[in-house]
Design a protein around this nucleic acid. Structure first.
Lengths: 406, 406
DNA sequence: GCGAATTAGTATGTATTCTAAACTATATGT
DNA sequence: ACATATAGTTTAGAATACATACTAATTCGC
C-alpha cells in the first residue's frame, strides 16, 4: 500500500453550495412522513429541528412536486388551531420489473407502499435469446403501465431486477449464469420500461431487491440489519446494514452462493470447491434427494421434493438438512465479518421453512452459540424483487425531490 | 420485519443549516492538500470546483486554525503571478497509544504523516490489574507528550488501541479476552492521554487501527479495499472498504477470528467450533507445532517456532500450513460477502511471511480461483496500531476544522 | 355565547456563505 | 517598457435558514 490518505482519492467530492442545504432539507422533511400516518407542518418542525417558517417554505415546494398533498384539517380535540395534514400522494408510484429463470413479472407500487398492479408470466427463460425475453417483458410492462394510468398513478421511476451480477451505472448485466447471459447492455431497454419517468429505471440484482423489499414491505419483526438469503436456482444473498443495502466497493457484496463451507467439498461451477451452492443450490438439493433431472420442469421437481419430504423420505430430508448446515456456516461468516445477528430466508428456502430452518438453527447454535439470534422467513413470495425494485425507485425520488421541481 | 421505510429510523438526521456548507467546504479544501506536496489557492479552486474567492476565504480560516501554513511563493517558471504554497503545518500532531498483551506503546504522528516520537515498554499485561497497566501507560504518554512538546508539536487529539471489542462512544472495553478485561470503562483515562487536545482521545480496536495505518502509512501497492489480518495472540481483522473502515451496524465487523472454517473442527473458547482461531491463533499454531507452554515467554516460544521452521521441522511446517488454509477459507468468505480482492497480513502473520503466505495462496487458488488477487505483508511492524490510532485522530481534526476556530 | 389561552402557520428582517465579475498584484516574454 | 498571463482580493447579488412578530383557528372556563 502506498501512502493513501483517503483524502486524495480520485472521486473528489463536489463543493458544498448554498442550495445544497435546501436539497437536503427537502428530503429531510419527506423522511418525517410515513405511508400510513399524516403529519402537520408543526410536527415536522419539531421532529426535524427546523423552524416552522422553514418547514412551511419546504412543504410549499414539496406540494408543487406532487409527492405530497394536504389532507384537510387534523382535529385531535386538543386546544389550539388544528394543523393541516400532509401525506404522500396516492397518485404517484414506481414500476418494478423482474426477469427470472422461470418467469417475468412487472408491478407498480405507490408512495404509500401498496402494490397496486402486478402481473406475472410463466416463461422458460433459460433457453430463449435475451431479445425475445426483453420484448415480452416490454409488452407486459406496457400493459401494467396502462393499468396504473387507469388508476390515476403517475410513474416516478422504475427498476429491473435480474438474477445475476449487474452494473447499475452502465445498465449492464455482467453475468447471469442461470439465464446464460453475459455482458448484456440494457441501457435503452431499461428506459423503455417507464418512458418519461423523471427518476429513470435502474438495474439491480434480484437478491438485493428482494432483501430491500423485506426491509420496506416485509411483515416480520423490525430489524434493520440482516442477511437475506434468496433460494432461487442459485443461492443469492443481500446484505442490509442499518436500513440500507450494503454493496461493497465493487457493488457485488453479499454473494453467499460461493462462500466456501467445506474445503474438502465438491468442485463448483465457479471453479472453486465446497461452495454453498454445491450443497444448498436448487440442483444440489434435488440431486442429493435423488430427484435427477428427468426432463420435468423445475416446479414439478420441487413439488416432488415436497412430496418426498412429506412422506419422510430419508434421502430428501438429509439433503435439506445438509443444505441447512451449509447455510449455517456461511451465515456465521457473515455474522462475524459484517456484524449482524439476523437472517431472512426467501425464495425456495421460505417454501421449505422449518425443514431447512431447523437444521440451520441447530448448526448455528452448535458452531457459534448466541451469535445469530433471529431467523425469519419471507412472506412476500415471488413479488419481493418487483416490490424492491419499485421501492428503490420511489426512494430515489424521495431522496432528491428538488429534481421534480421546475 | 414490520414496514420500515428506512426513513423513520430513530437516528433522525439533523437539519441542514447554512453554516453546514462552510463546514463541509473547509474540510473539502483540506482534502486537496497532501502531506508531501504544496498546493496554491488557485489549484485548490480548480480541484474542488469552488471559486477562487471562496477558496481564499476558506484558506484564511484554515490558516487561523494552525492546521496549515503558507510556504512562501511557488516559482514554476511559467508566466503570471506565482501562487503562495499551502501545506500542512509540521507543528501539529496526534498521540497514538496501544495496550497489547506483551507491551505498551505510545507515539506521536504529525500532520505530514511522520512518526515523530515513539516509545515502547515490554510488559506482561496478561496477569496485571488494569489500573496498573493504565498507570504505566499514562506515565509513558506523559514522557512522549514532553518529547513532542520539545519538538514543537501541539496535539490535536489522540487514540488508544486495545486488542478487544470496544465501544468508542462510551469509552468502554466490552471484552479483551487476552488481557482478561471485561466491561472496563476508560472514559477519564482516555482524556488523560492527551489533556486539552481539542479533538479528544478515542478508543479503538487494535486490528482496526492497524488496518487503517496500512491504508494511510503503508508501503505496499495502492489498494483502497482489503481485509487486514492481525496475527497477535488472537486472530483479529479489520475491513477497509473504499478507503474507510467498515465497522458494521454494531461496530464489530471484521471479526475474522471466529469465522467457522471447519464445521467438524475443535471446540473454541468462544463456545463455537472450528473457528479460525482454533487453527491460526498463536496458541493453536504453537500447540500444533509441539511447542506446548513450558512457562517460557511468548516471544521465546515464537523464536522456537521460527527455529523449528528453519530446521524444516515437519510438525511446525504443517502447523503453519494448516493455519494458512484456515485463513484462506475465512478470506474467501470475506471476498464473497463484502466484495474485496486484497488481503494484508500483519502481526505474526507478517513475521511468518511466505511460510504462511504460500499455503494461503495455494488454498485461495484451489477454493476460489481468481477471486483474491493481491496478498500483501505489512511492513509497519509493531507501530501499526499506534500510527493508526494517531492517524484517526488527525483525520477527525481534518474532517471538522471548524471546531478549531474561535 | 364570549373572551382567554393555546397551537398552527405566515411574514419580515438579518446573518451566513456561496457565485460572478471586476479589480489589484506579480510574474514572464518580446 | 509594455503586453500577456496567472494569482489572489474586493464587491455586489442571490439563496436560504433563523428569530421574532404576526395572523388564524380552535378549545376551555365562565
Amino acid at each position: 500500500m502506498t501512502v493513501r490518505t483517503g483524502t486524495t482519492s480520485p472521486g473528489a467530492e463536489a463543493p458544498g453550495r448554498v442550495g445544497d442545504v435546501r436539497r437536503r432539507n427537502l428530503a429531510l422533511v419527506l423522511t418525517r412522513l410515513t405511508p400510513h400516518a399524516v403529519a402537520t407542518r408543526a410536527e415536522i418542525a419539531v421532529a426535524t429541528g427546523l423552524t416552522k417558517a422553514s418547514v412551511s417554505s419546504l412543504v410549499a415546494d414539496l406540494l408543487a412536486t406532487g409527492l405530497i398533498e394536504e389532507r384537510g384539517v387534523t382535529r385531535d380535540g386538543e386546544r389550539g388551531r388544528p394543523g393541516v395534514g400532509l401525506a404522500f400522494s396516492p397518485g404517484q408510484g414506481a414500476l418494478g420489473a423482474e426477469v427470472n429463470v422461470d418467469y417475468l413479472a412487472v408491478g407498480v407500487v405507490d408512495l404509500q407502499g401498496t402494490l397496486r398492479v402486478h402481473e406475472r408470466i410463466e416463461a422458460a427463460n433459460q433457453r430463449r435469446p435475451p431479445e425475445d425475453i426483453l420484448a415480452e417483458l416490454h409488452g407486459l410492462a406496457a400493459r401494467v403501465r396502462k393499468a396504473a394510468a387507469d388508476k390515476g398513478i403517475a410513474l416516478l421511476g422504475g427498476g429491473l431486477a435480474v438474477p445475476g451480477l449487474v452494473e447499475p451505472d452502465t445498465g449492464t448485466v455482467v453475468t447471469a449464469p442461470n439465464l446464460a447471459w453475459a455482458d448484456i447492455s440494457l441501457k435503452e431497454g431499461l428506459a423503455g420500461l417507464a418512458p418519461g419517468a423523471p427518476c429513470g429505471v435502474v438495474l439491480s440484482n434480484e437478491a438485493d431487491s428482494a432483501a430491500l423489499a423485506e426491509l420496506w414491505y416485509g411483515t416480520g419483526p423490525a430489524v434493520d440489519t440482516y442477511l437475506y438469503l434468496s433460494g432461487e436456482v442459485g443461492v443469492g444473498g443481500g446484505l442490509v446494514i442499518g436500513s440500507s443495502l450494503f454493496t461493497g466497493a465493487g457493488g457485488h457484496a453479499g454473494e453467499v452462493g460461493h462462500v466456501v463451507v467445506d474445503p474438502r467439498g465438491r468442485r463448483c461451477s465457479c471453479g472453486g470447491r465446497g461452495c454453498v451452492e454445491t450443497m444448498a443450490g436448487q440442483e444440489a438439493i434435488l440431486a442429493a434427494a435423488g430427484l435427477t433431472d428427468g426432463g420435468s420442469t423445475t416446479a414439478a421437481r420441487l413439488a416432488a421434493l415436497q412430496a418426498s419430504l412429506a412422506e419422510g423420505d430419508a434421502r430428501a430430508i438429509s439433503a435439506v438438512e445438509r443444505a441447512g448446515e451449509a447455510l449455517a456456516v456461511a451465515v456465521i461468516a457473515a455474522a462475524r465479518l459484517v456484524d449482524l445477528s439476523a437472517v431472512v430466508l426467501g425464495g425456495h428456502f421460505a417454501t421449505l421453512r422449518d425443514l431447512i430452518g431447523r437444521p440451520l438453527e441447530a448448526a448455528l447454535e452448535d458452531l457459534a452459540p448466541g451469535r445469530v439470534t433471529a431467523l425469519h422467513f419471507s412472506e412476500l413470495g415471488s413479488t419481493a424483487a418487483v416490490r424492491g425494485a419499485a421501492g428503490a425507485a420511489l426512494r430515489r425520488a424521495l431522496a432528491s425531490p428538488h429534481q421534480l421541481l421546475r
